[in-house]
Computed example of a mutant assay.
Amino acid sequence: MTDEQAVRTLIEKWVTAVHAGDLDTVLADHAEDLVMFDVPPPYDGVRGLDAYRDTWPGFFEWQRAGASFELESLEVTAGSDVAFAFALLHCRNVGDDPRRLLRLTIGLRKVDGRWTVTHEHHSFPLEVESAAPAIEALFDQWGADTATRNLDALMEPIAEDVVSYEIDGNYTGKAAVREVCAAGLASDPGTITLKIPDPTVESDGDLAVAWSVDHVTASGDETTSRATRVFRRTGGDWKLIHQHLSYPAS
């Protein structure tokens, strides 16, 4: 058996043991001075074989609820005395996204002719939540509230410090924007509709930017305007902090 094959066999045996909850086999072939960077804390890693041992009972308990721990891919590079491997694994419970894979890097050294694990690094990629569904739902609600002339509901997602560049002027503060919206709703006794189809939304953390072509219908006439809107997430809710509406110059 080549060194690469030996390392691969060691890791495959370890994965099988983790899935089976076989603690003795999980600990086998690990150095006393092992350092592991795990998914949960501590930030500076789990240090030493005893501390490593203590991390597993809780994981095994979680796994007994039906979770899996299985290799998706494994790459091994081995020298004469040092080796490393990186792998992707399915580490998930029933109902979890199968595309979300655990990342694993393992460092090994040969001690007395035997490959020994000296370092493990486990992690999941950070999940960046897109603001698009929430912003699109907000736009749909704006459309519904416009049709029913529900001014209070229209103002709900507006930040107190909003700055709005409207078609007819610039307005600062929620109260000023409320006056503009109230005047618009009162300007036509007939049906007024607002549609914001296919907006583009880009987000990062608690900020989101959306741009779209808005369609407004009043007295049977439809107008379109260009719109750029900036939202800030506050207390879990997205609030409009800036909008810029315009028509192209004729």
Rank of each mutant, 00 (worst) to 15 (best):
E127Y: 14
A137G: 13
S130C: 06
V94P: 03
F124T: 04
R114L: 14
C91R: 00
V111A: 12
R149Y: 04
L102H: 00
L89G: 02
F124W: 00
A132S: 13
R100Y: 11
M155F: 00
E156Y: 08
L151I: 10
V94H: 11
T146I: 04
D145E: 14
P125Y: 00
L154Q: 03
A144P: 07
H90M: 04
S123A: 09
R149Q: 10
D140K: 13
H119A: 09
G143E: 06
A159R: 07
N150P: 07
V162R: 01
R149T: 10
W142I: 02
E160I: 01
E129P: 12
E156T: 14
L126N: 12
G113D: 07
H90I: 05
H122S: 07
R109Q: 09
T118N: 09
G95R: 07
F139H: 10
S130M: 10
F124H: 00
T146W: 07
E160L: 04
N150E: 14
P98G: 12
A159N: 06
A153F: 02
E120L: 13
N150Y: 06
I106T: 15
D140F: 08
L151C: 11
T116K: 10
A153C: 02
H119F: 00
N93V: 02
P133Y: 09
S130P: 11
A134S: 12
W142V: 01
T105N: 12
D161G: 08
R99G: 14
T118L: 05
N93K: 13
E120R: 12
G95C: 04
W142H: 06
K110C: 14
I135N: 05
W115P: 14
I158T: 12
G113E: 07
N93D: 13
P125R: 04
L108P: 03
L102I: 10
L89P: 00
H121I: 06
L101K: 12
I106C: 05
E136W: 06
L154V: 00
R100T: 08
V162Y: 07
D112C: 01
D96A: 13
L104D: 01
L89R: 01
H121N: 11
C91F: 06
D152M: 04
G143Y: 09
H119Q: 14
H90Y: 11
L104C: 07
L89Y: 00
D112A: 12
V128H: 15
A132W: 05
K110L: 13
R99Y: 06
E156N: 10
I106Q: 02
T118A: 06
L89W: 00
H121A: 13
L154A: 00
E136L: 05
H122G: 01
T118C: 14
M155W: 03
G143F: 09
R109M: 12
L108C: 10
N150A: 14
H122F: 15
C91D: 08
D97Q: 08
T146Y: 04
A137P: 03
E156S: 11
L89M: 09
G95N: 01
